[in-house]
Design a protein around this nucleic acid. Sequence first.
DNA 1: CGATAGCACTGGTAGTGACCAGTTCGCGTC
DNA 2: GACGCGAACTGGTCACTACCAGTGCTATCG
Lengths: 259, 259
Amino acid sequence: MTAGDRRARRRGHGDLGPSTAPSRHRTTKHEELRHALTRLLDSGMQAHEPLPSERELMDRFEVSRVTVRHALADLVQRGRVYRVHGAGTFVAEPVVRKEMTLSSFSEDMAARGLVASSRILAVGREVAGAAVGQQLQLSPAEEVVHLTRLRLANSEPMCLEDTHLPVEIAGDVVTKLHEKSSLYELLHTHAGVRVVRAEQQLRPTVLSREEAALLDVPPLSPALLTTRVTFDERGRRVEYAKSLYRGDRYSIEVNLWRI
Amino acid sequence: MTAGDRRARRRGHGDLGPSTAPSRHRTTKHEELRHALTRLLDSGMQAHEPLPSERELMDRFEVSRVTVRHALADLVQRGRVYRVHGAGTFVAEPVVRKEMTLSSFSEDMAARGLVASSRILAVGREVAGAAVGQQLQLSPAEEVVHLTRLRLANSEPMCLEDTHLPVEIAGDVVTKLHEKSSLYELLHTHAGVRVVRAEQQLRPTVLSREEAALLDVPPLSPALLTTRVTFDERGRRVEYAKSLYRGDRYSIEVNLWRI
DNA sequence: CGATAGCACTGGTAGTGACCAGTTCGCGTC
DNA sequence: GACGCGAACTGGTCACTACCAGTGCTATCG
């Protein structure tokens, strides 16, 4: 029995929420507070400006200090604020740390201020084969879901994505996929699979004639090929994806630290 | 007093005293527990094996659940364990943590098991100009040191590197550079400049005829262009470098985490 | 007038206690 | 045997409290 089956059954008889569709998981207080603080940060606060103290946030939002600290810890991890023992919590310098985290295409584009969409080029089941089988640690004879999408940013082709998922995990989730949906979100809401980690490889390449046509650039244009294996919270391999990004529109920015 | 002043003071105070006062720092309970758990993990536990439950760890180590959760949260962030709501805490699969960190070419190659060397193609002083001046935040009229090197791994061309450094910082350090030396190490030992952070951009490109000849690959071969501005501990810009890596020999591997 | 001791902040650690939410498994029923 | 249900786990959230530790301003003392 898979996690997906279990989840489907439980929802089948248990859910009391509004009848239809993607059951939004309940939002917690620290998440709410984090969003409120994010809005505060986005509304014109300057770098190194102090935030209200933990005690003040307790009073203002009527939550306990545990909750305040939880929300602030999340913001620290996201690089939005930094804390100095005895002094306070301060707005961090804006940092392009986005690429160091595992984000879906939609999230990635949103972070760049673009609207993501996609065109599904192909979807179906097939036998894994040697290469995909090895990456997903399945028998080459096992079935996988194969999904090819053209990903658009502001309606312009940006990336060509080739994704393989184990049938056992992705099951029929992929059939629910449409132009606007995020695969990771679907996996979460419909299969109970939460993607948490990925091993990713980046290398430069040049586009074949077919790839170039789809991406609307001249053949032999430079592109970035990223290959990634994605893991869920229990270490299962849930995705093997090869993405081809247009070199003229896409670049990766990272902050590096000496350790 | 502004927050900026506060920060500057803090950094000045904190970074002074390179190796003064070692273990003055009091160990906390959650740190102790984390070390105990790390020893437990290192003593032959298998991946996906469950750890004792939070309640059991409370009893066994005679601490509160807050402390247990704090220690476990640290281990999660370090990628040593993962948690599944309702099921337990489990040993994570050993991960080759090749996080992207700021490393010199020599260090980078050493990490891949290769021996780095270089051929200096050009070195000298010149006027910064608009582009370099902007990146290093200098007047375009100011002088910079310009250094072009072909970087080799196991005596094979791997990367073409174009580096600009402010004269004020790099001074005559660069004259001491030879085939085997690391620029960052020279800056540290001879100029007292310690590189700690960089903002780096990655994008794919194709090689020109000249570049391809130097790197010993066919023209129009794919390559990775990285542009980086490097900062020292005081936040001064110490380097603006453009590196061109062979696409057939160089790839970047990263671990991404969902936050 | 400058150094400094003290105080009023700040975040950090730690405990207790309660309840919520997801997972697992066994027992009873069909 | 398959299924459904619930009890007994697991981690997650959140409240309250107390005190420790680092920071920064200020009033006081030499």
